[in-house]
């Protein structure tokens, strides 16, 4: 039977101390990803495991006029149980689509943001809401826009030696918000992705728009978003084509396959049609 050192710290300071002492330790939140990807009766773990289960600071949920803030250990069920209007609908919708309620009783928001292999379903809504993630190290803390959790190749970037403690979501009002998942339901696949979009309008003119697609990679183009700002709805065909061209350029820069790019652009065209009709 392989021996593991399992630490169950009761607070963030203690967690950071263990991480400093054991730089190769595995931080475990809900453990759903680790267990679901394992085969057989047990999962292979690092020799040193740090369970975040008992850190109450990581479970706090708070709300101000400007934002709602979740401790990284907030389970998806806890997020979904908040009353209407507390959490942006596109985030709730995607969280509700993850696993079953018995899985959501275990899976955490922080865990969903810390997956090294791909972006989980809640990532795209968080990216287009410009959510912030707080990372703590023994030296201090820093807030990072979740869009920066993607590297230059669009793949997830894990920040070694730092602990994700809180996720802050701005409480902005949006006139249009949509999030759709496509790919194989219930299975983890390279082909699964989520497209999310939020938009603010002023007299049928786009005053703010954010579009993010997250799957194996995160696709977001500020250039294309800027091109769409100031355009009247319904969008002219040339405006759509210009935005799609900018997104195609972004996909090429990320090195996405032709099939993946074509699918993304197809879904994006449908999104523009929904935007024209105001259909969420």
């Amino acid at each position: 039977m392989p021996e593991h050192d399992v630490f169950v710290p009761s607070g963030v300071v203690e967690i950071l101390a263990v991480m400093k002492q054991h730089p190769d330790s595995l931080l475990v939140a809900g453990a759903t990803s680790i267990m679901a990807s394992a085969t057989g009766r047990s999962a292979a773990l690092s020799p040193v495991v740090v369970s975040l289960e008992r850190a109450q600071e990581l479970k706090a949920i708070s709300r101000t006029d400007r934002f709602v803030e979740f401790g990284a250990m907030t389970t998806l069920s806890e997020l979904l149980s908040l009353r209407k209007g507390t959490v942006p609908s596109i985030l709730k919708e995607r969280a509700a689509g993850i696993g079953t309620f018995t899985v959501r009783n275990l899976a955490t928001l922080g865990g969903a943001l810390s997956c090294a292999t791909r972006f989980r379903d809640v990532f795209a809504p968080l990216a287009c809401l410009d959510a912030l993630a707080e990372f703590r190290t023994p030296q201090g803390s820093s807030w990072v826009n979740v869009n920066r959790l993607a590297g230059e190749n669009g793949r997830p970037v894990i920040r070694p030696g730092s602990l994700l403690t809180r996720i802050r979501i701005p409480a902005d009002e949006w006139d249009f918000a949509i999030s759709r998942r496509y790919g194989l339901d219930g299975y983890e696949s390279e082909r699964n992705a989520v497209l999310s979009c939020v938009c603010r309008m002023n007299k049928h003119t786009i005053s703010e728009i954010r579009i993010a697609e997250a799957g194996a990679e995160l696709v977001r183009s500020r250039e294309a978003e800027t091109m769409l700002i100031g355009r009247k709805l319904p969008l002219a065909e040339r405006d759509k084509d210009a935005a799609l061209e900018a997104y195609a350029g972004r996909c090429a820069a990320l090195g996405l396959s032709g099939v993946r790019t074509a699918r993304f652009l197809g879904v994006l065209r449908t999104l523009f049609e929904c935007l024209d009709r105001g259909e969420e």
């Binding site: 169950v8 047990s42 369970s51 018995t102 009783n105």
Partner: peptide, 21 residues
């Protein structure tokens, strides 16, 4: 979902819960 048990009063899939938890 056939392995559901109550963990701290909440139903969870026991196949996804590691022993240390």
């Amino acid at each position: 979902g056939r392995c559901i048990v109550l963990l701290g009063g909440k139903p969870v899939n026991s196949c996804l819960v590691p022993a240390f938890r």
